[in-house]
């Protein structure tokens, strides 16, 4: 699919923006953590859209946030 851009996001309602970002993030996160991809994606969607866009373009920042999310998730579930 074509890259998701800030202008494409801005043209969509807020909930649709999160949907668009989630559809892009989920397969990337699923490749890292198949069992937790849904929960991790849900957590990351609480982050600002501008930062989520950056994460889509930067695997390093995505991996960093995914690691943070897993730590929070595990602490939450204890």
């Amino acid at each position: 699919p074509e890259p998701l851009t800030a202008s494409m996001l801005a043209a969509a309602p807020l909930m649709d923006q999160k949907q668009l970002l989630g559809e892009r993030l989920y397969p990337m996160i699923h490749a890292l953590h198949p069992n937790l991809a849904g929960k991790i994606t849900g957590m990351l969607l609480e982050i600002d859209n501008s930062e989520l866009l950056h994460m889509l373009e930067s695997p390093e920042s995505l991996h960093s946030k995914v690691d943070e999310a897993i730590a929070v998730l595990q602490a939450h579930q204890v």
Binding site: Q19, G22, E23, G38, T41, E46
Partner: peptide, 22 residues
Amino acid sequence: GTNINWPPEFCPGVPWKGLQNI
């Protein structure tokens, strides 16, 4: 407090409802 329903799970192709709980 602890919310056992958090975090909301994203499912591809399913309309995202996560923000409704914030």
